[in-house]
Amino acid sequence: MNMSEVFSTGALLMMGAILLVLLLQYLRVRELWQMALECQKNARWARIWEAENRELRSALRAEKAHIEQLQRKLVILQELIPAEG
């Protein structure tokens, strides 16, 4: 093998190594991209669930207030009914 063949073979091996590194980098970037998309999807669902939780907490507060109002009315009505005895 003469010098140019050695040089050509070395260059070809280097290009193969570079191609392998680029392929590995591509796979890693693709994996990171998928993770980012999944994270974005999870964040979207978290926002939806948080909005639903706020609505449910608000409805629960309204129901509690309504129960308190009904309990107060019940006390007033019980005071109006003469005690049997």
Rank of each mutant, 00 (worst) to 15 (best):
M1L: 09
M1H: 11
M1D: 10
M1I: 05
N2C: 04
M3R: 13
S4M: 05
S4G: 05
E5R: 12
E5A: 08
V6S: 11
F7H: 10
T9M: 12
G10A: 15
G10F: 12
A11H: 07
A11Y: 00
L12D: 09
L12I: 03
L12N: 14
L13Y: 00
L13I: 04
M15D: 10
G16N: 01
I18C: 12
L19N: 13
L20Q: 07
L20F: 15
V21A: 15
V21K: 14
V21I: 13
L22H: 01
L23G: 15
L23H: 11
L24G: 01
Q25K: 09
Q25A: 13
Q25C: 12
Q25W: 06
L27H: 11
L27P: 02
V29A: 11
V29D: 03
V29Y: 07
R30Y: 07
R30M: 07
R30L: 09
R30Q: 11
E31I: 06
E31D: 02
L32M: 12
W33L: 10
Q34Y: 09
M35K: 14
M35H: 05
A36Y: 15
L37E: 12
L37V: 04
C39W: 04
Q40S: 07
Q40D: 05
K41D: 06
K41S: 08
K41I: 02
N42K: 14
N42P: 04
N42G: 10
A43Y: 10
A43T: 11
R44G: 02
W45A: 07
A46M: 09
A46W: 03
R47I: 01
R47K: 15
W49G: 00
E50G: 03
A51M: 12
E52G: 06
N53L: 13
R54S: 00
L56R: 02
L56H: 10
R57C: 08
R57Y: 06
S58F: 00
S58G: 05
L60H: 08
L60Y: 05
R61G: 00
A62D: 05
E63M: 15
E63H: 14
E63N: 13
K64V: 04
K64C: 03
K64N: 11
A65M: 08
H66S: 03
H66Y: 04
I67M: 01
I67R: 02
E68P: 00
E68M: 09
E68L: 12
L70C: 09
L70T: 05
Q71E: 06
Q71R: 07
Q71C: 08
R72I: 02
R72W: 03
R72M: 11
K73N: 11
V75T: 01
V75M: 00
V75P: 02
I76F: 11
L77D: 01
L77P: 01
Q78Y: 04
L80H: 00
L80R: 03
I81A: 10
I81T: 02
P82N: 00
G85V: 06
G85F: 06
